[in-house]
Amino acid sequence: MDSLNSIAPREPRLDEFASARIGAKLEDLSRVSQAQPYHSNGPVLDTRTVQLFESIADSGAVGRFQRGGKKYEIAELSASGYTNEKGQLTSSGKAFATPWREFEFGLSIAAQREEMNTGMQIWAGGGLAILAAGPSPFAAETMGIAPNQLALDLVTVAQLPMAIASWCSIGPAWTTHGDLRSLQQKQFYARLASAAEPAPADADGAWLRMWHQPWTAWNIRRSGSQSGHSWLNAGSAGHYRVGTKAGDITLEPEPSAVVWDTLVRFIHQAVTAPEQAVDGMGQ
């Protein structure tokens, strides 16, 4: 018998809860997101270095009287190829700084996972976007970023949604509705800070499934505006839109495809109306 035929095909691992809930064999999708973590191609720079880089985008060089107090930052920029040793932008530095010179809109992402607070700042202009990212909550150990450091990348505006989706781990998931849809703010933030926080006494199976997954709360905002969207990433239980009602935190299950579509639309509106506020749910 052919050795290949003698090996029984391995069936994918099932998501037991979702399969029972929906009444069909559903594959465990958690490994899909784990296989596509955020990856930065740019240098990791001190936050002060990134700020200096932005400040010289128009002038093209660190001011003569600034150099003495900016030796560390200039050394980092020079080592990365963006400036020479005197703090003057190289051709690579000038090309990279295009979104700062031709700024059209900015976005900011903030995320919290237990005690970890991180984020990403984005400047877009001239068809390009600069990403200054702290460690992704889903790939912090692989990014090698220390406190007060940022991974700097340049992408096209068309690549923005995928880059953000990867950093925020927007992957496929079987998101199910539960009986509960809200929490007191105190309890929500306590659970966000620690997985040891007890679940509500009246939590049903779907809610408990979500409760015992890793929690990461994140939001995206348009710079200079309150427009934006907020979600809770609950691992294999999927995404939940975060809102407020009567002083409580509402959690509405939202399929990953809807999260993705919302993100794409949000960025598209920023591109097509750079001077206008982007519609969304300001939380």
Rank of each mutant, 00 (worst) to 15 (best):
1 M>R: 13
4 L>S: 13
6 S>M: 13
19 S>W: 00
22 I>N: 01
22 I>P: 00
24 A>D: 11
25 K>D: 15
32 V>F: 00
32 V>A: 05
34 Q>P: 00
36 Q>V: 13
39 H>Y: 09
40 S>T: 14
42 G>F: 04
42 G>M: 08
44 V>C: 14
47 T>A: 15
56 I>G: 08
57 A>N: 02
57 A>Q: 03
58 D>K: 10
60 G>H: 01
61 A>R: 13
62 V>D: 04
63 G>Y: 00
65 F>D: 12
65 F>W: 06
66 Q>I: 00
69 G>T: 05
70 K>A: 14
70 K>M: 13
72 Y>P: 05
72 Y>R: 15
76 E>N: 11
78 S>V: 07
78 S>T: 15
78 S>M: 10
79 A>P: 11
80 S>F: 09
89 L>W: 06
90 T>F: 08
90 T>R: 08
92 S>Y: 09
93 G>I: 12
95 A>N: 10
99 P>S: 10
106 G>S: 11
107 L>Y: 07
107 L>A: 02
110 A>K: 13
114 E>M: 02
114 E>I: 01
114 E>K: 03
119 G>W: 02
122 I>Y: 04
124 A>Q: 07
129 A>L: 02
132 A>G: 12
134 G>S: 09
140 A>F: 03
141 E>P: 01
141 E>I: 00
142 T>N: 09
142 T>H: 07
148 N>P: 05
149 Q>V: 04
149 Q>I: 04
150 L>H: 08
155 V>C: 09
155 V>Y: 08
155 V>H: 08
158 A>V: 10
162 M>F: 09
167 W>A: 05
170 I>M: 03
172 P>M: 09
174 W>K: 04
182 S>I: 04
183 L>Q: 08
185 Q>R: 15
185 Q>K: 13
186 K>V: 09
187 Q>K: 05
189 Y>N: 11
190 A>Y: 07
194 S>Y: 08
195 A>K: 09
196 A>K: 08
196 A>R: 09
196 A>G: 03
196 A>L: 09
199 A>V: 12
203 A>W: 08
203 A>D: 12
204 D>A: 11
207 W>D: 07
209 R>I: 11
209 R>H: 14
213 Q>R: 09
214 P>F: 02
216 T>K: 00
220 I>M: 10
221 R>H: 07
222 R>N: 07
229 H>I: 10
231 W>P: 00
231 W>R: 01
240 Y>K: 02
246 A>H: 07
246 A>V: 03
246 A>T: 06
247 G>V: 06
250 T>I: 07
252 E>M: 12
254 E>P: 01
257 A>Y: 02
258 V>N: 11
258 V>D: 14
262 T>K: 14
266 F>L: 03
266 F>K: 05
271 V>W: 02
272 T>S: 14
280 G>T: 03
